[in-house]
Design a binder for these strands. Structure first.
Length: 492
RNA sequence: GGCCCGUUCGUCUAGGGGUUAGGACACCAGAUUUUCAUUCUGGUAACAGGGGUUCGAUUCCCCUACGGGCUACCA
């Protein structure tokens, strides 16, 4: 959900300003490769209606290739890392992971303010800043593994302008010498992101707030690479929080609290763990998007229902809120209800067909259209349109409470008479049935409340539901009579 | 721990130096309905605390508290 919302805001912003939304796959961590994840992202974006103009799965354009793994093969990143070493803004480091670990424990024990690789600690580590030049060369020639780290300057004020938060100022002493280029030949996110954004002429970086702490590092990289004048603008989005308790919304929360956190169903190929998706739960993409758009953004008025086009014209980063938004599954249902009502009965009937088939009902779209007309206003989801199973099969049992409350010794006789009236009806539509019912009541000197609930009970087995005369019409004369006969004999 | 970001009804939010602090979801009540749902009407409910600045602060500033994020050869 968080990722979809980020994509959505990027898409809305690009569309609004006549820009291009491009899908780039940042797959620089080979150890975290997940089979199927890429296809999943593409399918999810398509379902949501968030379509990039170019990118993996959406057609090649001037900015291909789009996978960072492929761009690495094309040698995109290495020269920039080397260039940074040449200009004195980066250096080689040969420390093993054990040595790094050792340094951290040592610094922690010494209660140092920071336990990172920085201007102070780099002196004691194995890198091209601390080692003699000939030894560095010797290690490189010997093919010893190395990383390239940025050389963060001492005591400099680094300023980041964020569209949502204004100026964020950090002293460079708080930053560490982040790895830019890994020993496996891959760039890290930091380098790859800056290089690719520059090469792809990205004008705006709209991403989650978890990136705010590394934004100063990115500003420094643009500066050292000589691209500060074409540096993109930044907007760091507030996080999506758990509905209960505290913290960032996570994979686990969904199934724990009974709502999806993924757009589509997802099965983790490594663990086999399944997570449910909004699509499969029966949400319309429009309501999912509408709900997401309003989680952290709001127009100036009171409008809550927006089409994608309306979102595009209304959206602005200045109106994105600064604080995290607790996700509310209840409101999501409300959004779906609103959209469900906007669909025609015919359309809903066509969508409901899958569920009807799954339930084993013998029906047609024409028939379902009539069912939908009866059940639409009480449903939030397409599947709920078919919840009144008595519209498809005769009741197997009768609601006990209603029986006890309404079924009297004389009821069998009264309903038997009403059944005969129904049999005699020439036209069996709601209006005729209602007319006949009213004259029947008048003749018998009975009130609606005494007979109608029992009529409902015999036909549906329930004590409540949609308009009875319409139900009877939908069931048809034969079925109505048959259900009454069975019911009267069962309830005696 | 350090650094950064944040804080208006239970939730999402509008607003903004003087307001009856508005809307939506949820909740409650009434009306409508044969019933349930719908619909309509109404209601409960919020500016984290403390200092300033000011004639006046929920709004501007500072501090505190609380919440969140980051602190990997992950993104």
């Amino acid at each position: 959900m968080g990722g979809v919302r980020t994509a959505l805001y990027n898409y809305l912003f690009a569309k609004k300003h006549g820009g291009d939304f491009i899908l780039r796959i940042e797959d620089t961590d080979q150890t975290r490769y997940v089979p199927g994840a890429e296809d999943y992202i593409i399918e999810a974006l398509k379902w949501c209606g968030i379509e990039p103009v170019e990118g993996v799965g959406f057609g090649e354009g001037p900015h291909a290739p789009y996978r960072q793994s492929a761009r690495k093969e094309a040698g995109v990143y290495r020269d920039y890392a080397l260039g940074l070493i040449e200009s004195g803004h980066a250096y080689y480091a040969f420390d093993t992971s054990e040595e790094l670990e050792e340094m951290r424990t040592r610094l922690e024990a010494a209660k140092a303010k920071s336990s990172s690789y920085n201007a102070v600690t780099r002196q004691n580590m194995k890198n091209s800043l601390s080692l003699p030049a000939d030894e560095v060369q010797k290690r490189l020639d010997a093919g010893e593994p190395y990383v390239i780290r940025i050389k963060i300057p001492r005591n400099e004020e680094v300023r980041v302008k964020d569209i949502i938060r204004g100026w964020v100022v950090v002293n460079s002493n708080e930053l560490d010498d982040k790895v830019l280029f890994k020993s496996d030949g891959m760039p890290t996110y930091h380098l790859a992101n800056i290089v690719d954004d520059y090469l792809m002429k990205i004008s705006h970086v709209i991403r989650g707030e978890e990136w705010l702490p590394s934004a100063p590092l990115h500003v420094l990289l643009y500066r050292y690479l000589g691209w500060e004048d074409v540096m993109p603008e930044f907007a760091h989005l507030p996080l999506l929080l758990k509905p209960d308790g505290n913290g960032k919304l996570s994979k686990r929360d969904g199934d724990r609290l009974g709502f999806p956190v993924f757009p589509l169903n997802w099965t983790d190929p490594a663990t086999g763990e399944k997570s449910s998706g909004y699509r499969e739960k029966g949400y319309f993409p429009e309501s999912f998007i509408n709900m997401l758009a309003l989680l952290g953004w709001h127009s100036s008025g009171n409008q809550e229902l927006f089409t994608m086009d309306e979102l595009i014209s209304e959206f602005s980063l200045e109106r994105v809120s600064k604080s995290g938004a607790k996700f509310d599954p209840e409101k999501t249902k409300w959004f779906n209800q609103q959209y469900l009502r906007q669909h025609s009965d015919r359309d809903l009937a066509e969508r409901a067909m899958v569920y009807a088939t799954a339930k084993g009902y013998t029906t047609s779209v024409d028939h379902l259209e009539k069912v939908v007309a009866l059940t639409k206003e009480r449903a939030n989801f397409v599947e709920e349109l078919l919840e009144a199973d008595y519209l498809f099969v005769a009741p197997q049992q009768y609601d006990e409470q209603t029986v006890q409350k309404k079924w009297k010794p004389e009821s069998a006789a009264i309903l038997g008479e009403w059944k005969d009236q129904l049999s005699a009806l020439a036209t069996f539509d709601a209006a005729s049935i209602e007319g006949a019912f009213k004259s029947f009541l008048e003749a018998k000197q009975l009130g609606m409340g005494a007979v109608l609930p029992l009529f409902r009970l015999l036909l549906t087995g329930q004590g409540m539901g949609p308009n009875m005369f319409h139900i009877a019409e939908l069931l048809g004369k034969d079925e109505t009579i048959s259900r009454m006969t069975n019911g009267i004999s069962t309830l005696g």
